[in-house]
């Protein structure tokens, strides 16, 4: 169809300098510039951010919900990756 809304883009907003970019939604646009301008008009009308990323939706690779077990489980039995696994003498206090 020639009469369409253009491809979908995902929008990420950085709230303040130094903070991570967080996904806030998506939009349609025909090119990068339009995607960025639409993102500004759609997602930052009230000073929600200082920086924007737009990414074509189909460029995003996502894990699939069915694999949630086998994919993330390897982290489950490695308690030694957390600081609470270790004993620090009381005399040392906070470390």
């Amino acid at each position: 169809m020639s009469d369409n809304q253009g491809p979908v883009w995902e929008v990420f907003v950085q709230k303040k300098a130094g903070q991570p970019f967080v996904h806030c939604g998506s939009l349609h646009a025909f090119d990068k510039e339009m995607a960025l301008q639409n993102a500004r008009d759609l997602y930052t009308r009230r000073n929600e951010g200082v920086s924007l990323w737009v990414v074509p939706s189909n460029a995003i690779v996502a894990s699939s919900p069915e694999d949630i077990g086998p994919f993330f489980e390897p982290a489950n039995d490695k308690v030694y990756r957390h600081p609470t696994f270790y004993q620090i003498p009381d005399a040392i206090g906070h470390m």
Binding site: S2, D3, N4, Q5, G6, F30, D31, M34
Partner: peptide, 9 residues
């Protein structure tokens, strides 16, 4: 507008 934007891209 949509046609022009598409052609421009």
């Amino acid at each position: 507008v949509r046609e022009a934007a598409q052609a421009f891209a």
